[in-house]
Design a protein around this nucleic acid. Structure first.
Lengths: 210, 210
DNA sequence: ACGTGTATAGCAAGAATTTGCTATTGTGGT
DNA sequence: ACCACAATAGCAAATTCTTGCTATACACGT
C-alpha cells in the first residue's frame, strides 16, 4: 500500500517535479498538487492523503496558517514543512503551528524520501542546522535569566505565590507565621524590584525563577 | 589531530567501553573518564577536552546542572548528553542547560561517532524520537491552549493584570471606571475558575492567554 | 419581542495585601 | 569580636482586592 501524499506549493515547476519523484518512488503516490492552500479543507477532504507536504511561501494562506488549519480539521494528519530558507521566525512558527517536521528544499531526494517515511512512521525529521537552531533557542532562554539573589526560602515562597496561595495558606504550608511570610514577600519584592504579587508572579514565570 | 573527548558517567563499565570505543576510532581520543561531575571544573581544566560526553544520572551533581556549569566556565566547549531514557523533563532540562546535543545510550556506535563529529562540527545531533518530542512540545504549546471564552475587553484587562497594574491604573488606562474594571475582573475570574489576581496571572502566562 | 451576552457603573462589607517600623536567633566570614 | 545576612516574629496603618448585590444600554439572534 503506497502512502498518499499531497503537495501545496506555489511553484508549479517544483510541484510537478516533486509529484513525479513521489510517483516514481516505491511506497508513495502523489494524490494532489495545489498551488495554494486557499481551499485546503476541501482539497484534503477529497484527496484523503496520508501526509501533507507544505511550502511556506504561498499567496493567500501561508504555510504556517495552513498547517494550523490542518491541525484544526485533521488532527492526526502529518504535515511536513518544506522551505528554501532557515529563518528562525518561520521555523518556530511552523513548529508551533504543529508541523511534524521541517526540511529544506535543497535536501537530496534520498534524504527527502527518508524524511517522508520518518514522518509517516511517527518521527520528526528536522535537518541538523534546524535542530541546532531549536537547541539554541532553548539554551538562549536559560542564558538570559538574571540572578535576583533570592534565597531558597524566598524561591519557595515565590512558588506558592505563583500557585495563587494567600499569605495565610503559605504560612501554614511552610509552618511559619503570617508575619514571617509577609516579611519574606517584602524581601522578594525588594529583590525583584516590584511591589505587587502579580508583578512578582509575572516576573517569576517569565524569568523562570520558579 | 584527534579530537579530545572526556566522559562523565557513574557507570564504570560503560565508562570503560566508551573510552575504548573512542580510542579505537580514528579521529578521537578519550582523555579522561570521571564517575561523577563533582570536580567538573578542575577535571576539564586539566584534561582540556574538545567535547564533553555527559551522563544525566550521576550521584552528586547531575548531568543537567553539570552542563550548566560547563556553559558557565567553558563557554564554547560542546556538551553531548547521553541518557538511557527519553524523559521529557530531562530532555528539556538538558536543552535548556545549553547542551549541544542529546542522544540515547542505545544509539549504535556508528551513529554515536557520527553524532560526536556532528557536534564538533557545530551541529546539533538529536535522535528522531527526541526531535519528535521537541516538536510536540512546540505544537503542544499552541494546542493545549484551551478556550476560556474571554472577551476582547477581558483579555485586554488580563494583560494589564499580568503587567501588575492596579484596578485604578487599569481603569485610567482603559478609560473606564474602577467599578467597571472590578466587574471585568470578576468575570475573568469566573471564566478562569480562579479567585485571585495571582492565579489569573499564572494561568494567563502559562496558557498563553496573553 | 425577548432572551443572551457584553460593556458599562455603582455601593459596601469583609478579606487580603502592602508598607513602615522593630526585634531576636543562628550562621558564616574576616 | 564583629558584621552581614537569613529566617523568624510582631504591630499597625493605609491601601487594594474580592465578592455580594443591582442596574442601564446596546447588539445580535430567534
Amino acid at each position: 500500500m503506497r502512502s498518499r501524499i499531497i503537495i501545496f506549493d506555489d511553484n508549479q515547476e517544483r510541484l510537478n517535479s516533486v509529484a513525479m519523484l513521489l510517483n516514481l518512488s516505491a511506497g508513495f503516490t502523489c494524490n494532489g498538487t495545489f498551488p495554494n492552500a486557499n481551499n485546503l479543507v476541501a482539497d484534503i477532504s477529497s484527496s484523503k492523503p496520508d501526509l501533507v507536504l507544505m511550502d511556506i511561501d504561498m499567496p493567500g494562506l501561508n504555510g504556517i496558517d495552513a498547517t494550523k488549519l490542518v491541525r484544526k480539521h485533521f488532527d492526526a494528519l502529518p504535515v511536513l514543512i518544506q522551505t528554501n530558507f532557515e529563518e528562525d521566525e518561520r521555523i518556530f512558527g511552523s513548529l508551533r503551528a504543529g508541523a511534524n517536521g521541517y526540511i529544506l528544499k535543497k535536501t537530496s531526494p534520498e534524504r527527502f524520501l527518508e524524511s517522508l517515511r520518518e514522518v509517516l512512521d511517527g518521527g520528526a525529521p528536522i535537518t541538523g542546522s534546524i535542530a541546532a537552531k531549536v537547541l539554541k533557542h532553548f539554551s538562549a532562554e536559560s542564558q538570559a535569566k538574571k540572578d535576583y539573589h533570592l534565597t531558597e526560602r524566598e524561591k519557595h515562597i515565590l512558588g506558592f505565590l505563583v500557585k495563587g496561595y494567600s499569605y495565610k495558606l503559605i504560612a501554614s504550608a511552610c509552618g511559619i507565621t503570617y508575619n514571617t511570610v509577609n516579611n519574606h514577600i517584602r524581601n522578594i519584592y525588594d529583590k525583584l524590584y516590584v511591589n505587587s504579587a502579580t508583578e512578582a508572579v509575572s516576573l517569576a514565570i517569565k524569568e523562570r525563577l520558579v
